[in-house]
Design a binder for these strands. Structure first.
Length: 105
DNA sequence: TACGTGACAAGAG
DNA sequence: TCTCTTGCCACGT
């Protein structure tokens, strides 16, 4: 039981550590968890974090800085709106200044 | 218990 | 340089 939340909880914790106006990638989180190539699991954990307000999933994108998961948000551009609100520049579902906002745990 | 799925990443052709 | 394939791990059915 607690094991289940354990892995998820770690992903949430990392996401919660992301400062305002910063973004990170699934791979970075996965690598921090010790499973460099299990980035898919990070996405899965994010899927479970929908109802959690403390998890800024909109700040988590793939290594390209593309808002891959925006499809999972309520609005079509909610994820983009949130990121733009934080000073990010989104273009074509991709963060233009991704490397500038890139934050590693 | 076993198979399929999933918001990715990296390597090889 | 671009596209395709494989690997990875845990959850859901």
């Amino acid at each position: 039981m607690d094991k289940n939340e354990n892995f998820f909880e770690r992903v949430y914790q990392i996401a919660r550590l992301i400062p305002y106006g910063r973004v990170t990638s699934y791979g970075a989180i996965a690598r921090h968890l010790g499973s460099g190539r299990s980035a898919r699991m990070v996405g899965w954990a994010m899927n479970a974090s929908h109802g959690l307000e403390d998890v800024p999933a909109h700040r988590v994108v793939n290594s390209k800085g593309i808002l891959t998961g925006k499809h999972h948000f309520e609005g079509t551009n909610l994820m983009q709106q949130l990121l733009e609100s934080e000073g990010a520049v989104i273009e074509n579902n991709q963060i233009v200044n991704f490397k500038e906002l890139y934050w590693e745990p």
